[in-house]
Every structure is written in C-alpha cells, then in structure tokens.
Design a protein around this nucleic acid. Structure first.
Length: 884
RNA sequence: GGCCGAGUGGCGGAAUGGCAGACGCGGCGGAUUCAAAAUCCGCUGUCCGCAAGGGCGUGCCGGUUCGAGUCCGGCCUCGGCUACCA
C-alpha cells in the first residue's frame, strides 16, 4: 500500500470491506432508537448517473453515518423506479424486452452508486418492475378498488398519438407532452381514475404536521386549491332551467351584470336564441379545436352572446348570458356570475364587449365618483347592494349565503382545484391493472370472434393470483388503439373460466404507482406473506428524513401521501398518518459558468446590451433587428469592467455570463465516473457538499474540486505523521472541541459546506505541527468520516485501530472548552472599529469600558469630543457614541 | 400576471442585529527544482498614501436601532414553479 493518498487504491479496498463485513446492514431487534433516512430513488436511465444524483445521496449518507455514530439504528435503503417510457421506447426500436434493458441499467446504476461509497443496506434493494414488487403494487390497487377509490370513467383525456398513450394533466406542458414534446389532443376515453379528491381536506390538513420546505407546502396547498364560497342558482328567463354558479364572492351578487357559461356547458344549446345560434355554434366549435397552447397565446378575451338572459336571484335583474372559453368546464359548475367591477377577468371581458360595470364594494363605504379604471378585487364595504349596504365583505359573505340558503336559491360550497387522478396508461411497461371483465361472444375472441366486453362489471383478480404478469410481446409499438398495447396480446387478454369468457384490463398503471409505496416495502422487503408487516411499520415509520428534488414537490409527494392515508385507513401504517416527516430538496447543479459573445450577420462582435429577444424568441440587435449568433468565449479572454463582463481585448464588447443547466445538447454534462477516476469518490462527495448550501442551485466547477482534494491530501499528510501522545496545547484543544461542536450542529442542520470549512480550519492548524496531538487528529478523522468515508477508514486503521470507523461513537465536545477564557473585544466609535481590547470572558462591564477608553487608537478618536453613550455587549463588542 | 427563492470580492460562498468577506477556487510574489508539475510560505474587496493611517463598500431608495448584509416599507434584476380555478 502506497504512502501517498491514493483514492484508487483505498476506495475499492474499503468498499470491499464494507460489503464483506456487512457494515451497513440495518440493525433489527435492537433497543436502539430508530431513524429512517430515505433518498428519492432514481429512474435507471441508460445514460447512467449524473452529478446531480450524488448531491442528495451524499447529504443523506452523511446524516445516516452521523446518526449511526450517535447510536441510532438507521434504515437507509436504495432502489430503482424502473417502469417508464425510455426502456419501452428502446424496446420499440430494438425489440429488446424492456426488462432486459432495465436490468442492465440497474446494474450500471448500482455499480456507480457503490463506487461513491454510499452506506445503503443493499440487501433491501427494491426494483418496482420486479414481479415480487408488482404483486404488492397490484394488491394496493385492489385495496383502493374495494374501497371505492378506484373507478372507471369516460374522461376527456390528453391523448398523445405519438406516444400512444393518455397523459395526466401534469404531464402535459403547454399542450405538448412533457416527455418528447409531442402534440396532445383531448378526447373521451374509458379510464381508471383514483378518487384522490376524497382525501383533499386530509391532504391539506396533514401539511400542518410535517417539516417541509414552505415552498413545497405552498405548492401542494395551491394544487389542492381549496376555496370556500357559495353555489348560487340563477333562473333562465322564459325557461324552466336554472344555471348554477360557484362563487367565492357571493357578497358581489348585486354587481353581477352578466353570466358566462363554458363553451362545453350543457345549457349552452338551451339558452341560445335562434338569432344567435349560428354564432354560438361557431364559437363552440372553434373553442373545442383550440389547444391549451393557443388559448394561452391569445391574451384577448373572446366570447359570444347567447341571446338568453338569466335572472339575478337577489334583485330580479335581467343579466345576459354569454359563453367564453375563459370559463372552464372542469372547475366549479362550468358557469360563473360575472362581476366586472370586482374580478379582473370579468372586467377585461366587460370592457371588451361593452357590458355595464356596477360597483358593489368600495374601500370607503361610499360609491366611487368616477368609473372604475380596473377591477377592485379587495375586501371592503358593500354599496349598491340594497339592504346589505354598509356590510363588511367577510360578514356579508356569511350573511348572504345564509339568506340564499333560506330562500332555496343557493348554499355554502367548497371547491377544489384538485381533480381525481387518471390512473390508466395505454403502454406496455407498467404494472397491469389486476381487473377483468365479463365478455359476451359467440365464439373465441382470441380467434377474432365478435364480442362485447362489459366494462361496467369489473372483477378484481383474486389476490392469490397476484402478481398478474405482463405478457411477452414481439412488438411494443403503441399503435393507434386507445385500449393500449396489451389489447393486442389476445392470448393474455382473453381467458375462459367456468365456460365463460372474460377479458383482462389492458391499461397499465402510470409510473407514479411504484413510487407511491416503495418506502413501505423497504421496511420489510423480503416479506412474501404481506407487502410489509405491522411490526416493521411500527418499527420504522415514518420516514424521518426524505431527500429529493423539488421537481417532485407536487405529484410524487401528493400521490404517495394519498396512498399512505388510504393504507392508514386500512390499518396498515400504525398511527402514522404522514409518510415523510422532514423533507429536504437538494438544489440543482448547473453546468460550468460560460461567457457568451454576440456576432451580427457580418461576423462583427456586438455588445450584449444591444441584444434582445424578439417575438419569435430569436436573439436580435435591438437597434436594427438583425439576427445575432452567440459564441462561447474562453474565461481567459474575459475581464470585468464595472458591473459587467467584457472581452479583455475589446472592453467595449460586453458579454453574457451564465451557468446553463447540464444537458447533452450543450455538451456540458459531467459524468461522476470521470470525476471519481480523476479525484476519487471522497473528493467528489466532499466537493458536492462544499459547493454551497444544499438547497441552492449552484454551478459546477471542476477546478474547485482540486481544492477539496488538496484538503483530503493534507489530512492524509497530517494523520500519517507520527502523532504526539502529549496533551494538546490549550488553544488547539479548544479549537478541536469547537470543531466537534460545529460539525455536529452543522450536520444536523444539513449545513455541510460550513462543516467542511470548519474541518479545513482545524486541519490547517494541525498541518503546521510536525507531531500533531493524537486526540486532535483522531477527532478530526472521525468528524470527516461521514463526508470522506474511505479516507477516514484508511486513516483510522493506520492510526492503529481496528475497522470500522463507523462503529466509533461520535465525539462529544466539552462545553467548558468551546468558550475562550480571554476574548478580544472590538471597540467601535460611531459604528467604526477603532481598536480592540483583550479581556476576560466574564469581565465586569465597567472594567471593559475602562480598558476600551484607555486604548490609544480609541482615545485618539475621542479627543475633543463628548462621549454620549457607551455600550458593552458582553463578550462581543464595545460601542462608543460621541458627538461634537 | 401569481407564488417561492436569491442578489455580498475576479469566482463558489461565510457571517445568533455586534469586527463584512470565514473556508475554498483563481491571481500575484517567494521557497524548493537543472527546469517544470506537485508541494510549502506570504499577499490578495476597492480607492488615496512610501508608510502609519484614512475614505468607500453586501442590487437601489427610505425607515427602525448605539449598531443593519441581517429587521420593516417601497422598488429593480435574476432564477425556479405556476398560470384565466370564478
């Protein structure tokens, strides 16, 4: 073994040791308190690990190793979320079964993860595509089905013909598929839907009991979108119909000067007069063809008058009924009462179409003198509202809702933005939905006999027959059949039982399914009799710390919480109602900072302040509209001039500096394997933690790893010197205890960057000594081990100890040694530090002030001035205020 | 448009309302070397000054305070998410 720090030797050595020794096996049957530290498991893509992955994984690994050293039994598992489109698309292209591709990708990921020295209990690895796992995912689906939480519905779905599947609303971005950017159209299709809306209030209330980033909780709250208001019925003039609207502002009913129906609203045809019919039908047709993208791009409100009138239930006023696509059929009742004076959207619409605007709320309590220039959406005092005039908005809402209810014209109503969860996909590579249906046929449907599938009579697959496996196919193409890829697997789809024909469900589950409960399986991964045992749930739930990307703030985290609550109701999670107690999002790691210069068509450089984006998104010169091209500039050619970066050889040319996301197309993706080869896993881990706060978005910088590597090298040098067995000098002893305290506190708060900086400081002190004290060196090696575990194990062994350093208790700082006996106090005069005095930590105020005034530099500042005020903040600072 | 977050040296970033710039990168100077790399030592916000020392400095404007990077009010810029949800 080399005497130099050689990561390529020691890292494999210790990884092999940990594997042989089962160092990281989860302790069961101990009395030690538990902690469950979980990473969001990855999708094993063919591209392998990205440097973004190890960021969160290193953070959780540090916490895990720290907790173990503090006596906790820690569950820290890893697995793979392996269903999903890329493996299937690869199968379409190559004919390779997705299971084969998935297996290979998982092997690559596991190898890469192991190279980084994470302390997972690999015996508990979970793969969502493993039939032994799918079995229980299907079992949970049946639980949902039995409880009435999984049902079929004809849903207007987002059908993506290119992908051959239905997409969830959240998988559609700007009218295109999130994956691939293919066009998406709306059409009605039979789908399985999960009744997540039944849990809306609990999903909302549960957020009050968890320690999550406020931004994520806000996003979930907004996604659920609970709003309290009233349902109000407006009669239709000359017809025995009523239009129901939902409003959060029933206090503005007197200001309702028109109604708007969504174009798809069932009453549209009935309220439309013959004179307006042609225009209305044309509008409805064009609205249905408009994609969401088109709707967003045209900011102008559109709509047409139906010719019909409704009657305002509070004052009998005739209000015209319009249709417009700014009212959505999917929310509330698909119809609104429009109050232009107090709703921005209604104001725009009324202004555009010349509809009267009646003010019914004012800040002062008196009607405004001039017409409103914009909608007044805030609360205020009622005006122009008959007997309700003078009421405050909040009280008015309550009162009028009661009055409407008493009159049979309305009632209180709560609405949610949250929709039930469309749970079917028409793909191959997902869990089959374990349901089948009776079939009426006069022959063998597998041979093409005519048949009818009775989808209204779903039958659950008996649990003892689970898992329901996917059939093998030769062709994984999505095809145009909205029943899905599995519909072509006739031998799998149709079967006979007791002489009758049945057909299996051909939809599969979405990728979210497996990740909804993997944290539960990790508790008891080899259980063949149950998805997990009650004992395991009592032992390990909830997840104490969950680390993963903010991109899962809504979907995964909301779906998993929903399933957890259903499982809680089924008595399967003990008393634990929320699965993830503390949640932390690691920030994104961007590519290296790049400098860009612009050139015009002739190739001449153009300073960045002239560049702007035109309506098409192209970069042009704002002076003449000429198209500009961007070129990268090497950092060596860049200098800073004032607030901007400029070209060193021509400072008139300003450059753009930014750190773009890592992406294949930009060619700035950093591969962790390369970094491990060059610098070692310990340096990569420590660097990623040293870059800045865990939650922050931060640019990658390969040069900076060199600094972390140097720190590890110096630690090696220090710790391989023959240590001094004498007690450390006082200052060094105190610094060591302060470092112990700071590193522990910083790990608990997940401030890893400052923990590393503190260890660097101690290491720099020790490096100056020919024979550093053993106590200090050993403390530092133990402190560093969660960050750089291979190096720490090696040094611990070389210091004469038996492995593993993981078994060494975390050092405790001595509270008496983390405060200094003598402190240097800065002395400020009128806010500026003019001198400093050394005093005992608990010196009396009078003594400190006297010493401060005696200081030569301070005295000079006081000369000829009046001392107005003197303040001593014990142990921190002296402030003197002078005048004259 | 809405919500969330962030603006501090050339760069990444530190700072319970109390010494702004810890730690690291980069740069400059030196030691070592035949030379270089690596390593080690020193300096490194900026302006004035030979120096001692002093002025100015945490996006901008104002406020609270003996004292503000930090708290409050109002803006500006950037990033992320979201988007007609009545």
């Amino acid at each position: 073994m080399s005497e130099r720090y050689e990561p390529s030797e020691i890292e494999p050595k210790w990884q092999a040791y940990w594997e042989r020794d089962e160092t990281f096996r989860t302790p069961e049957g101990t009395e030690r308190p538990k902690r469950y530290v979980l990473d969001m498991f990855p999708y094993p893509s063919g591209a392998g690990l990205h440097v973004g992955h190890p960021e969160g994984y290193t953070a959780s690994d540090i916490v895990t190793r720290y907790l173990r050293a503090n006596g906790y039994a820690v569950l820290h598992p890893m697995g793979f979320d392996a269903f999903g489109l890329p493996a299937e698309q690869h199968a379409v292209k190559t004919g390779t079964h997705p299971a084969v591709t998935t297996r290979q990708n998982i092997d690559t990921f596991r190898r890469q993860l192991k190279r980084l020295g994470f302390s997972y209990d690999w015996d508990r690895e979970v793969d969502t595509t493993d039939p032994a796992y799918v079995r229980w995912t299907q079992w949970i689906f049946l639980l949902l089905f039995e409880r009435g939480l999984a049902y079929q519905d004809e849903v207007q779905v987002n059908w993506c013909a290119a992908l051959g599947t239905v997409l969830a609303n959240e998988e559609v971005i700007d009218g295109k598929s999130e994956r691939g950017g293919h066009p998406v159209e709306r059409l009605p299709l039979r789908q399985w839907v999960l009744r997540i809306t039944a849990y809306a209030d609990r999903l909302l209330d549960g957020l009050d009991t968890v320690e999550w980033p406020t931004s994520t909780m806000t996003m979930q709250r907004e996604w659920i979108g609970r709003s309290v208001g009233a349902e109000v019925r407006f009669g239709v003039e000359g017809r025995d119909e009523a239009i129901e609207v939902f409003t959060t502002r029933p206090d503005t009913l007197f200001g309702a000067t028109f109604m708007v129906l969504a174009p798809e609203h069932p009453l549209v045809a009935k309220v439309t007069t013959d004179a307006e019919r042609a225009a209305v039908e044309a509008y409805v047709a064009s609205a249905s063809n408009r994609s969401d993208l088109d709707r967003q791009q045209s900011k102008e409100k559109t709509g047409v008058f139906t010719g019909g009138y409704a009657i305002n239930p509070v004052n009998g006023a005739r209000v015209p009924i319009w249709i417009a696509d700014y009212v959505l059929m999917g929310y509330g009742t698909g119809a609104i009462m429009a109050v232009p004076a107090h709703d921005t959207r209604d104001f725009e619409f009324a202004t555009r179409f010349g509809i009267p605007i009646v003010e019914v709320v004012s800040r002062s309590g008196a009607p405004s003198d001039a017409p409103l220039g914009e909608a007044m959406v805030e609360a205020g005092v009622a005006v122009n509202s008959g007997r309700y005039d003078g009421m405050e908005t909040a009280a008015f809402k309550v009162k009028i809702t009661e009055d409407l209810e008493a009159a049979g014209k309305g009632r209180r109503r709560v609405e949610y933005k949250l929709r039930d969860w469309v749970f079917s996909r028409q793909r191959y590579w997902g869990e089959p939905i374990p349901i089948y249906f009776p079939v009426t046929t006069d022959g063998d449907p597998r041979a093409g006999a005519a048949h009818t599938i009775h989808h209204d009579q779903p039958i659950p697959v008996p649990v003892e027959e689970l898992p329901l496996r996917l059939p093998d196919l030769d062709d994984y193409h999505p095809g145009s059949d909205p029943a899905g890829v599995l519909a072509r697997a006739l031998d799998w789809r149709f079967f006979q039982k007791d002489g009758r024909w049945y057909a299996r469900e051909t939809n599969t589950m979405p990728q979210w399914a497996g990740s909804c409960w993997y944290y539960l399986r990790f508790m008891d991964p080899h259980n063949e009799a149950a998805a997990w045992s009650r004992e395991a749930a009592a032992r390990w739930l909830p997840v104490d710390l969950y680390v993963g990307g903010a991109e899962h703030a809504v979907l995964h985290l909301l779906y998993a919480r929903f399933w957890h609550m259903v499982l809680y109701d089924a008595g399967l999670t003990g008393a634990v109602t929320e699965p993830f107690q503390r949640l932390v999002h690691q920030g994104m790691i961007l590519g290296e900072i790049e400098y860009t210069a612009y050139r015009d068509a002739a190739g001449a450089l153009v300073s960045a302040e002239h560049a702007t984006k035109n309506a098409d998104g192209a970069i042009v010169d704002r002076r003449d509209g000429g198209v500009l091209s961007a070129t990268r500039v090497e950092p060596a050619r860049v200098t800073k001039r004032g607030a901007s970066f400029v070209l060193a050889e021509d400072p008139a040319i300003a450059l753009v500096s930014r750190a773009p996301k890592m992406s294949k197309s930009l060619g700035n993706v950093v591969n962790p394997d390369d970094i491990v080869d060059r610098f070692g896993a310990d340096a990569l881990r420590t660097y990623e933690m040293f870059m800045g706060p865990l939650e922050a978005t931060k640019p990658w910088n390969t040069d900076s790893i060199q600094g972390v590597r140097r720190f590890l090298e110096r630690l090696w040098t220090v710790a391989t010197r023959t240590p001094s067995e004498a007690p450390p000098p006082d200052a060094l002893l105190r610094l060591t205890h302060k470092t112990i305290q700071k590193v522990g506190e910083d790990i608990e708060a997940m401030r890893f960057n400052t923990a590393i900086s503190a260890m660097m400081v101690l290491n720099n002190e020790l490096a100056a000594l020919a024979a550093p004290p053993r106590f200090c060196v050993e403390a530092l090696v133990v402190l560093v081990h969660p960050f750089a575990p291979h190096l720490a194990e090696e040094l611990w062994e070389r210091l004469g100890h038996a492995p593993s350093i993981q078994a060494v208790p975390w050092p405790k700082h001595d509270p008496a040694l983390v405060v200094d006996e003598v402190v240097e106090i800065p002395v400020q005069v009128n806010g500026k530090v003019r001198g400093r005095v050394s005093v005992s930590r608990d010196a009396a105020e009078a003594d400190v002030l006297a010493a401060a005034l005696a200081d030569e530099a301070v005295a000079r500042q006081l000369e000829g001035k009046t001392l107005l005020k003197q303040i001593y903040v014990p142990g921190r600072i002296v402030t003197l205020v002078v005048g004259g």
